[in-house]
Simulated scan of single mutants.
Amino acid sequence: MNRLGELETQVMLRVWWLNRPSSVREVQEALLPDREPAYTTVMTVLDKLFRKGLLRRRLAGRAYLYEAVRSRDAYTAELMRADWVAGDSRAGALVHFVEGMTPEQIEALRDALRVALP
């Protein structure tokens, strides 16, 4: 799985935050005041994300509305899985990952394991 560029990441974060089918203009406005990209730049990035399979779109009048194909959590899990599978020592990578967690993150991991492995 390819990592997203900085602007692609910021656009995806806004699409997830909006949490509904959104126009280019709505995504552009959600980027403010942190960024001030041109409308055409946002349109290009949304189209790239659509072509990468991260967004779906539908025509509404003369404009497309974009929404995420999967949740931010599901996307993050997919990235983690891809990195983990690519590693030489999966157990070692997992140990290093857990060692770097805060107590709150470890408790969240325990909760997730209880849900996933009843």
Rank of each mutant, 00 (worst) to 15 (best):
V15A: 01
A91Y: 13
L46A: 09
E67G: 03
Y39D: 11
G61A: 09
L32P: 00
P103C: 08
R14I: 08
D34L: 14
N2Q: 11
G53D: 10
Y75R: 04
D73Y: 03
V98A: 12
V69H: 02
R20S: 12
E26D: 08
M80S: 04
H96M: 13
L4E: 12
L46M: 13
Q10S: 01
L31Q: 01
P21A: 15
R70Q: 08
R57M: 10
S22H: 04
Y75S: 06
D111C: 03
T40K: 13
A30G: 12
R57W: 02
E67Q: 07
G61P: 08
L113A: 13
V24E: 02
L32M: 13
G92P: 10
M101F: 13
A93W: 14
L4Q: 12
L59F: 09
D47I: 07
V42L: 06
N2A: 07
R72T: 01
M101P: 09
M1Y: 06
L13T: 03
A38H: 15
N2R: 08
S23L: 11
R25K: 08
Q10E: 04
E26N: 03
M43K: 15
V45C: 02
Y39G: 08
Y66G: 11
N2F: 03
E99V: 00
G87C: 11
E26R: 03
R62F: 09
V85L: 14
Y64W: 07
A108M: 12
E99W: 06
D34A: 12
R81F: 05
K48S: 10
A112H: 07
V69S: 03
R3P: 09
V42H: 11
T9N: 05
L4S: 09
P118E: 10
L113E: 10
A30I: 07
L117D: 06
Q28C: 00
D34V: 10
A74Q: 06
V24R: 10
W84V: 08
L46N: 14
V27R: 04
V15W: 01
T76S: 11
T102S: 15
M12W: 06
S89M: 05
L55G: 00
L55Q: 00
L94I: 06
M80C: 04
A38Y: 13
A68Q: 02
T44E: 13
E67D: 06
R90I: 03
G100P: 08
I106V: 14
V15C: 02
L54C: 02
E6Q: 04
T102K: 15
R62H: 11
R110M: 01
E26Y: 02
T102Q: 12
D47W: 06
A63M: 04
